[in-house]
Design a protein around this nucleic acid. Structure first.
Lengths: 340, 340
DNA sequence: GGTCAATGTTTAAACGATTAAATTATTAAT
DNA sequence: ATTAATAATTTAATCGTTTAAACATTGACC
């Protein structure tokens, strides 16, 4: 292992002080430094394959140019797409992103954030699990810059970027009703997460506005870590019995993924026997025989905005920015109008 | 922003030296330290909400307990699943994982690795892009511990963990032939990557062994960054014409994803009109009307092994470990025997 | 020739921890 | 009471960098 070259090594070879080397390599005091010496320093740095030790740099400057990203599960396509967008955006500003999955567990999130803070990340992007309010308040008290993404708590005055969920679902339900479906069911999660509950609220509101009496058998609320079979079972329940639903709204990509599998298993045709709308797109939906109508989350805008807000918040900005982005309803075959 | 507490702060409040505080908090020299003082130090550390500055620690110890992971694209399910596994495995040993996507570009990979090294990662897990040999050799010369994952270069004596690709594909082709399919096509990437070419080799070898003359129209080799439509076109070519193939082998999840969409678009039935085998599973394959036969990559073993080898290599281990894992052929409906 | 300004470079402290070695305090043994 | 051994704590250097301030050199100008 060839020993790493440090400023000192360069300084010694050239025969100057480390300070001068530092100034040259950071392009500071350019007009004050002898051009020839500067050139020589750069040459030697190149020769010795010098890499500045960011650790030492960070220690001194108290900046790491690193942000932490906490998602529920990096292997979920929603999270990984978002991660990729954030990675690219952060890169534009020379920031590196450190990831971690919370597994929907406050404890795991806590441990993760602690690890990230120990590594002196300059700020955090967090998609918080249920019940994470106290820790967020704590972060605020400690003055650590962060932006919530995808999920937020209405009672907390924090930065966030999220989908306007109730509006989006409302739009979807209205579309189903307008297309002639009459018994619209929904599969969602049972949680205290505001974002998710907004989806339910949008659903109920749309029914009410259309004077459709809601039946509680239409709504399936599953644990947030529900397994594939559990989801299949819920869908099964909605579609059997004497009065099955004629349309299903899936409140997440995971729900849709397993739900559609069950629809396949039941050998039902979409949309003739049951119409389908999902939140979140996924390239993979296209494998389903019928193209699925879905609510397009503005992932790109979400990731970019959140990153931008965080970076601004890092370089001291005391304002709170809260953004609710509008979802786009992409209409496809799975909600073709009845008799249409 | 409440100023971060440092060892010094604790030392001052308690009225001892920073050294003592350090010893106590690191549980060193336990038998030599006054129990009461130790207790007091711990209390104060708790009160002041002390978080050791890992940056400073790293600077001193020259260890960051961080490893870098370079994948082609974190938003690809193969990469993100692997990332999740590695994240979990590394966590067991108190390591954090730093990610980045290379986008299949050596230049981007180079920049990424440079950034990771600047951050003093202790080692790297790399799924290298095509033509990355020189940089890997350079890493070796610099004595930086790394393990290749999923892809490797046979001419380079490096650590790696990968699928035994030719064997896996061989097995798949044999299965197709045994099931009565006679015109087996393959969609793969055109690249110099050994791993990918092994897939082609396995395919050709299996045909030869079975005395089936290979036709070049059966093999579609696409650029590694081929778009969805380009993939669809390739599949279209295979399936039209006077002598279409009766089975298709997809050499990656992306290829299968778009390929199956095209099969959907052509309204062909699987496996009656065309049988399908894919490398890599994906939960989403299940959306396709017919369950797809696939080669299961041992992702868990791959991620865990690679992490383990890297960590060992970090704490000085001069041996080179090369592992080719066997893939498992999961047989489903998409390759149902002809007339079976 | 002395003053001033501009130019070029070095000194030295600091960031927050670790840790070998030195120092001081306490206790036990003679 | 002295000494030795042990216990408890501190000192001070160090990791690799940054950066304000100090210092040195040169030339211009009166």
């Amino acid at each position: 292992m060839t020993k790493k070259t440090s400023l000192k090594d360069i300084a010694q070879t050239v025969g100057v002080s480390t300070a001068l080397v530092s100034y040259v390599l950071n392009n500071q005091k350019e007009n004050r430094i002898n051009k020839l010496v500067a050139k020589r320093i750069r040459e030697v740095a190149e020769e010795l394959n010098y890499r500045p030790n960011q650790i030492a740099k960070s220690l001194k400057t108290n900046k790491t140019y690193t942000i932490g990203l906490v998602v529920a599960d990096i292997s979920n396509p929603f999270s990984s797409s978002l991660a990729r967008i954030i990675e690219d955006e952060a890169d534009k500003f020379n920031y590196t992103v450190l990831f971690g999955s919370s597994d929907e567990k406050p404890q795991k999130a806590q441990k993760l954030i602690s690890a990230l803070l120990n590594r002196q990340v300059d700020g955090l992007l967090i998609s918080p699990p249920e019940g994470y309010e106290p820790q967020l308040t704590e972060l605020q008290n400690q003055g650590i810059p962060f932006v919530l993404i995808d999920r937020y708590f209405p009672d907390l005055k924090t930065n966030y970027v999220a989908l306007d969920n109730s509006e989006a679902i409302h739009k979807a339900v209205q579309h189903l009703l307008d297309s002639g479906y009459e018994r619209v069911g929904m599969v969602t999660f049972h949680t205290s997460l505001f974002t998710i509950n907004e989806r339910k609220r949008g659903y109920l509101a749309a029914l009410k506005e259309n004077k459709i009496p809601f039946r509680k058998t239409w709504l399936k609320e599953l644990p947030i870590d529900a397994s594939g079979p559990a989801i299949a079972k819920a869908v099964d329940d909605l579609l059997r019995g004497q009065k099955p639903v004629d349309a299903i709204l899936f409140a997440s990509n995971t729900l849709a993924l397993y739900g559609l599998q069950q629809i396949n298993a039941l050998q039902l045709t979409v949309p003739e026997q049951v119409a389908v709308v999902s939140i979140d797109q996924a390239e993979s939906y296209n494998l389903f025989r019928t193209p699925i109508t879905y609510i397009r989350q503005p992932l790109l805008a979400m990731g970019q905005l959140a990153t931008k807000i965080l970076l601004e918040s890092i370089k001291k900005n005391n304002t709170t920015t809260q953004v609710n982005l509008e979802g786009e309803l992409v209409i496809q075959e799975s909600t073709r109008p009845v008799n249409g």
